[in-house]
Design a protein around this nucleic acid. Structure first.
Lengths: 315, 315
DNA sequence: TTGTAGGCGTTATCAT
DNA sequence: ATGATAACGCCTACAA
């Protein structure tokens, strides 16, 4: 079955035909066992639905990452095994997925640092997101994106008193984005806050609440993600405050809904699909070349100007 | 390692500890080979991005199905292997995924009938969506949902001249939904059309176009999916026609954006995640019980009343 | 180009 | 409860 060894293509053809005729399928297990290569890369991500039965909208970026990963793996003939953490310990996970794959892309937040260390001893790992491990890592430039969108508000729209609404206080994404926000204020010579003006926990409800707290205080707000900004729109609608006329706001992530809310949300797009693709490519590189130096990739983010910041938008 | 054989739990404990100490991981390949059970179920779905580089919004229901499948598989200790068709032939697919899994959930549209037949000879298959094969099948009640939402327009809002905008003419979903639309008109004693009033191809652009064709003709429109209805909203906004005051419309699928557009879209929700879960459970049943009779499941759909039909909505 | 003999890391079976 | 031994289906190496 194997390619390019020493035999004629006619022979190969004959073999293939015989296989087809017999309805033969190669056993992945036997192949993997003999060649020590399963031809499967694993993708480990955080729980999709922590709230159990509630059909909450879960982090949609995972889906895009999955798509990218699938595409990159398929390109080289590999398949993608997906697994959410659920309530499993690192050990249980290792038993049920690590043994089946050649390597693992681990999305930040899906595994404790300890488990990462443990599993990385027996399996190549690529961490997608911030990590303090000495492993291959890939992230999007959250900080740069936040800096850029804040600077946009300052330079193009002339705001000089901008609020920031954060996600969960210990979320690396939230921290990075707040840092970028501060960077922008600093560059502009504006006063720099020590902490976010409000916390919205990255949820729509949290955004609604945060917006109520801030009502009347600021004329421009940078939200740590789109969900919160969308929640804020509800609050503003009820309060009959117009966006962007009376107040400007921005999101982060560019989820699908960001285009559809009124006004459409100015936000920062993360290249989710590309993160998925690149992470798998990094893993495959590592598999083919176990001793190459540690690799650390930061993918650029992009400000998407729509109407909520005061730009006319292109929709 | 194996559970419940004839030995004390103390011994088992000792083994487990030794394994942990050594950093041992069981080889999935060796296990699979020896036990003829990979512990992996495959999920095959249509291409996610047929348009190549264009970052179009792709069929989002796939993501929900994946989540459901992952959950159901994890529950029994199995993992999920995902694969999009891309441009691969059935044979290529069989080689790269079929050999690695114990069975396959095939989403309708991802494989030709011929390929399905071929692969089903060597592997248990569950078809998710309409199929004319004698295989285990699971679908959502598209027809019932379309009937119900149309009846809602007739009975609760008093419309008697309703248009239907279809998707791709040969799409089974579109056909089913149109059939349900006809069912409702028939029950109400209204004239029954032979074909959709317009075709929107299931895309936003198609919906915009279809809406332009129908402008001024009807006061209520049932769209074959949400994307088209959302596209129609753009057309109506430009034409300064108000929804639902001047015209009522409905979608199908309840994608995330349906809640966020103005007005929020009345639509039909398909239990995507449950489809994913049940399909995997069916597959596992089949694996454990190869000779059980063919199984065919139809999951109910649900009308979600929001504002675009004239209901006040609950948002 | 073909044939043959291991070996991959488990599970299953049978005897102890 | 424990050992020994034969599969499992493929790949690699080597000899012919």
């Amino acid at each position: 079955m194997r390619d390019g060894a020493g035999f004629s293509s006619a022979t190969r053809q004959r073999v293939l035909e015989a296989a087809a005729e017999l309805g033969w399928l190669p056993s992945g297990n036997a192949r993997g066992l003999a060649s020590r290569r399963a031809g499967i890369v694993g993708l480990l991500f955080p729980d999709l639905d922590q709230s159990g039965e509630a059909e909450q909208e879960s982090p949609l970026y995972v889906d895009e990452v999955i798509r990218g990963a699938e595409r990159a793996a398929t390109k080289v003939g590999d398949a993608v095994l997906i697994a959410a953490t659920h309530t499993r310990t690192g050990r249980q996970l290792a038993f049920s997925v690590a043994g089946k794959v050649d390597g693992l892309v681990v999305m930040a937040g899906s595994l404790s640092n300890q488990d990462i260390t443990a599993i990385s001893r027996s399996l190549p790992l690529v961490i997608l997101g911030r990590s303090r491990h000495k492993l291959d890592t890939i992230t999007a430039d959250n900080r740069g994106g936040a800096r850029e969108i804040t600077t946009h508000l300052i330079n193009e729209h002339g705001f000089d008193d901008i609020a920031f609404v954060g996600g969960p206080p210990r979320s690396p994404d939230s921290i990075e984005r707040f840092a970028g926000f501060r960077d922008a204020l600093k560059s502009a010579g504006l006063p720099i806050p020590n902490k976010p003006d409000a916390i919205g926990g990255f949820t729509e409800e949290g955004g609604e609440r945060a917006m109520r707290e801030l009502l009347g205080h600021k004329r421009a707000i940078v939200f740590g993600n789109d969900e919160m900004a969308i929640g804020a729109l509800s609050t503003l609608r009820k309060a009959r405050i117009r966006v962007p006329t009376d107040i400007a706001l921005t999101g982060f992530d560019d989820i699908g809904a960001a285009r559809h809310v009124r006004p459409p949300l100015t936000t920062v797009r993360q290249p989710m699909r590309e993160l998925g693709e690149r992470s798998v490519r990094m893993l495959l590189d590592r598999l083919n070349n176990p001793n190459q130096p540690r690799c650390e990739v930061v993918l650029p983010t992009e400000v998407v100007r729509r109407r909520s910041c005061g730009c006319r938008g292109r929709a």
